[in-house]
Computed example of a mutant assay.
Amino acid sequence: MVFTPVDIIIISLIFIWIGFVRTGLGFGGAVLGLPLLMLVGGSPIDWLPIIGIHLLFFSGIALARSLKIVDWGYLKQSLPWILPAKIIGVIGLISLPPTLMTVIVYLITSFYALTWIMNFQIASRRGWGSRLLLMLGGYISGTSLNGAPLLVAVYMQNIDLKRLRNTLFVLWFLLVTIKMGAFLMVDVYINWQFSLMLIPVAGLGHFVGLKVHDQIINNDIQFKRWIGSALIVICIVGLSKVIF
């Protein structure tokens, strides 16, 4: 992809936003950033390697001094349900046409946006309900990195709040490592230079998100309703561009 100076400014602002959401909420950088990036240009396969590199970098930094504040027990318990579905999703991302994957990302994002606007809680504490959400979240994470809300819905019900964000960072690190490994195996183009150039930009959002994490969590419903409304508009515009 070739970008104009205006495109690069817009992309930089989007990556500030992605970094802010990732640490402000503890998840959702890809969910809230990928639809915006696709409006600038390209398909999920163009942007996910860049988002993946950033997630590995920043989650690694966040975990460097926090590995003791991780619920390793529940992480090990949940991974057998997540990982097989994740691998199937990655295969779909690599093999399906870019246009179809773009539509899928917009539809998934629209679903999340509607749940946030209506304050509909996706939750299941135990049994097959939780396992289904873990598998579905793993699959969607494989196709687009947008499975976080489903996975978080289960993790929130089973992990102490003080350990939740760091446990999620470990999960994201594992899932993105699998995806990046698959990209390398099938020779997906990864623009390393552009990705590294955007790290300081995303770092600004990452830093601000760390500072306001508690305030966002305390106003979670209002924040998500506002974001959900904006996402619906973005998804309508994106789908219109693809379909028409």
Results as ranks from 00 to 15, higher is better:
T109V: 15
L196C: 13
M135F: 05
L134Y: 02
Q121A: 07
V70W: 12
G26E: 01
Y155N: 00
M38K: 03
L75T: 02
G73K: 05
F194E: 12
T115W: 09
S195F: 03
G203A: 15
W72T: 07
A123Y: 08
G60A: 10
V237Q: 11
G127F: 01
I94Q: 09
I10T: 11
L204P: 10
T167I: 08
V40A: 08
V40Y: 04
V90W: 02
Y139W: 11
L56H: 11
V154G: 02
L168S: 00
Q77T: 03
Y106I: 04
L168V: 05
Q121V: 03
M180L: 15
F20T: 01
G127D: 09
L210R: 02
F57Y: 05
R225Q: 13
P97H: 10
A230T: 14
G60I: 11
V6E: 15
A62I: 10
G73Y: 07
S229Q: 11
G41C: 07
I234D: 03
S43W: 06
H206C: 07
R165M: 08
G29I: 00
T4D: 14
Y74D: 01
L231A: 12
I91F: 09
F15S: 05
D71L: 03
P97S: 09
Y106P: 03
T109K: 07
L133C: 10
Q157I: 12
G209N: 03
I234E: 01
L56T: 06
T99D: 13
D187Y: 08
L25D: 00
A123S: 15
G28D: 06
S144Y: 06
V201S: 09
